[in-house]
Design a binder for these strands. Sequence first.
DNA 1: GCAAGGTC
Length: 862
Amino acid sequence: MELIITEKNNAARRIAEILSDGGASTTQRNGVNVYEWGATRCVGLSGHVVGVDFPEEYADWRDVEPVELIDADIVKSPTQQNIVTTLRQLAREADEAVIATDYDREGELIGKEAYELIREETDVPVKRVRFSSITEREVKNAFAEPDDIDFDLAAAGEARQIIDLVWGAALTRFLSLSARQLGEDFISVGRVQSPTLKLIVDREREIQAFDPEDYWELFADLTKDGDTFEAQYFYDDDGSEAERVWDEDDATEAYERLREATSAEITTVRRRTRTDNPPAPFNTTAFISAAGSLGYSAQRAMSIAEELYTTGYITYPRTDNTVYPDDLDPEELLDEFVATREFGEDAESLLDVEEIEATEGDDETTDHPPIHPTGEVPDRGALDEDEWEVYELVVRRFFATVAEPATWEHLRVVAEAKDCKLKATGKRLLEAGYHAVYPYSSASESFLPAVEEGEHLDVTDVELEAKQTQPPRRYGQSRLIQKMEDLGLGTKATRHNTIEKLYDRGYIESDPPRPTAIAEAVVEAAEEFADRVVSDDMTAQLEADMSAIASGEATLDDVTQESREMLERVFEELRESREDIGDHLQESLKADRRLGPCPQSDHDLLIRQSRQGSYFVGCDGYPDCQYTLPLPSSGEPLVLEETCEEHGLNHVKMLAGRDTFVHGCPQCKADEADDTEDEVIGVCPDCGEDHGGELAIKKLRSGSRLVGCTRYPDCDYSLPLPRRGDIEVTDEYCDEHDLPELVVHSGDDPWELGCPICNFKEYQARQAVDDLEDLDGVGPATAERLENAGVDAPQDLHDVDPDVLATEIQGVSAGQIRDWQSQVPEVDTDSDDDPDDDAESEGESEDLIDGASAADERAESD
DNA sequence: GCAAGGTC
């Protein structure tokens, strides 16, 4: 038997299809797809299936001095047990193995990892095939002439693994221990994340240090035959044109002169035709950047692209390549779009030209083709709105790369009035070219009337504008990813994750990202004691070392030993300053939680955490000052830059994934609640009969709203209400619960929430279905199939027999169902479905409802 | 529990 191993399942499936001429069948072993035809088996890994780590005795951070990690052994162990087991089983049955992982350095290492697993089972020959795109020609050619694994190249990748682990783990533990930050809030450092963070911190330093300068600009309206256009004053500054006037007296003088002018003489008219070339094919960075200008975060853009890739609509989204492979025939691909409603016309217009030639970018690599549509075109209804928008972007980018250039006419006009020079520029699109199929890059025209030299135009309006120079702008996510690529930081597959990691670690917040105080402190500490780890030099050196290993000029041991010695020297410096560093880090962590002055003492209010883990606002002067304010019960609080004018407190944002919201000033929120009367809407279903409790719309000091019992805290019946919007109590009543229907007014569309009990029940049902998608390997489509089969919530999985359910649902194996079952903790379900049972634990919903609950109310009376 | 790199 011949065994073929690829880097991912998708590649295995397609290679099997090609080599078997469509005759391969799929079976599952240990929940892993294996493609079979004749005497061949093909299996996909999931990237690295083994990982490096320290031996177990180094696991406890408190027991081990961080410096000991430098010379600790490093062990490899399976991280994807199912796949490793399957690979071992298949290896035992094989007479020959072929490694067909991706054609790049990491692919070589993943291939070598597979090789080592195979070698533990058998001595059969192991070959290596390389191809840059999974097309029939490339794949068949590669398999016709197999090569050997490049062990030097794989060793280069291993050196990276070792150096990253040793530096990252040792320094992360050192900083975390010195600041006494052990649990979840450890302080991380790494070769890629830290220089990326420094980029953001350095930019922030520039912004902080920026000293704005005053300047003035002058504009005059010129009119010809009723057509008016704006011209800007300029002067000669050492041979170059300058528009900004730095001296106020000069500016007013020019202004006075221009105001006296009634006409201006055109002295120069210059026309030029400019060619505007279509963009290069998408690699990952260019794609993220284009999606960024449509409003998608890097992370979101990539996750949509991955979804489109796995469903087969676009090619592999992680690529450095900007040159289409020879196999790609643009005409053939365009043909696939001709019959479609959305793209038909554009595709046809592109096919209209004599010869189609695609653009090429500067980067040509062997990893994968540039991102382009596969030619399998989805129905618009098969995708959600975001997916369609991103898909259309990829299609149109491909269109643009095979379209004609655009041409522009640029017109520049210079006029003179009272010895003052004025200029204006206009541009007109002569040939739309690629803009006709790619509406994302700007093609806006600016109008100038046709004027001739020597002509006199009326000066109708003159304006003097006082301005200030602006600090540099913060990097947006896509700009940051671009910078990372320029500096060689991270890879196409990891850059967006690195940025996400900085958010998760509390190093940056908002978008564009702003560094927190702890981020600044970490960068400062690293700059002083471990400059390498915040510099892109470390990556540059590592790349050079890896090249040396790959070419045989150096060995893995040489390179890792030298790196370890360098880290030893860093630790010699660090040892002395451990306490100072720790103090500084702790002070910065506090600064990130500081809101502003306490109204009852000279101290500051801070965000604090109760012993039960809930967040509240408390005074730094505690226990002398015991002033507190509540915070919402869901999410992690984040201090925003913006402050409340009335109380001088920073606004607070509650981070809770999709349900993140801005809470605002906690003092304002508490005051609002104090000033709002409860509004009774009906009888409490729990205690109305026995004790006369009533339900009322309540506003809590934590900012939440709820429908709760007036006998609180004796009765804690409650239903959630949305956080925002005005609530209208209508005179229509719910037959079942005898409560008024509610309508929420916020924005343009009123939201008919209805009876609060009915609403909450629906919300819980919806939530349960959504929770299905939180299981690994369950997407929207699978969730729907599960729901149709009667699994409405993750808990329901415990009531089914995997073998039976697997026969009912297409494409789902019993193994997968068992895996999902293991992801859901089994709890004793309360058969009583009284709506307030779960009110306390429910989170916030996607549309407006929030988890206002009895827990909130309790928190305020504490 | 640390990194960065794969992939889902």
